[in-house]
Design a binder for these strands. Sequence first.
DNA 1: CAGTAGCG
DNA 2: GGCT
Length: 202
Amino acid sequence: MREAPTTLPGFRLWPGLLDGAEQAALLAEVRQGLETAPLYRPLTPGGRPFSVRMSNFGALGWVSDRQGYRYQPTHPATGAPWPAIPARLLSLWDALTGWPGPPDACLVNLYQDAAKMGLHQDRDERDLTAPVLSISLGDTAVFRIGPAKGGATASVRLASGDVCALTGPARLARHGIDRLLTGSSRLLPGGGRVNLTLRVAS
DNA sequence: CAGTAGCG
DNA sequence: GGCT
């Protein structure tokens, strides 16, 4: 599968990398993990709820609450360790990133209806040179990305099966999700989008 | 604070 | 749409 050219150096995009069967198989593994680590709605440190629901796989999970942002080894509601990262995601990481080690965190974000994610930077990881890999499943999202220090952003549609990465000069790019194109995919029975974000947290 | 509103 |  070809890699598409992008405007921002270091932002890599592989449209349609996962075919329908691969998307369905991955989604089944995600659903299985979510039985152990149920989706929940986090709060910002200021106490406002996210519109997205979250969970995590891997040794460490990204969480937000009144205490702040951090990575922790257990689910905030159940106290249990996060489920393992599915092997096919680890293979994808190996195939697409040149990074010498595996990711130890996989954030699971579920967008439904009007859920969105404001512009932000991923900067809670110990080594900010390790890439971030993102997999989209379900409804197409309108993704926005711009330079780390502010300025003009670009809008990019992320469809089911697309994979993208923030690498090198784009590692600290500001990015977010403006909205979903509802009804654009039938992968999730009730509609919506699952985003999987692989990171080296520690 | 990965949220939101108001300004311009 | 970007900044505060």
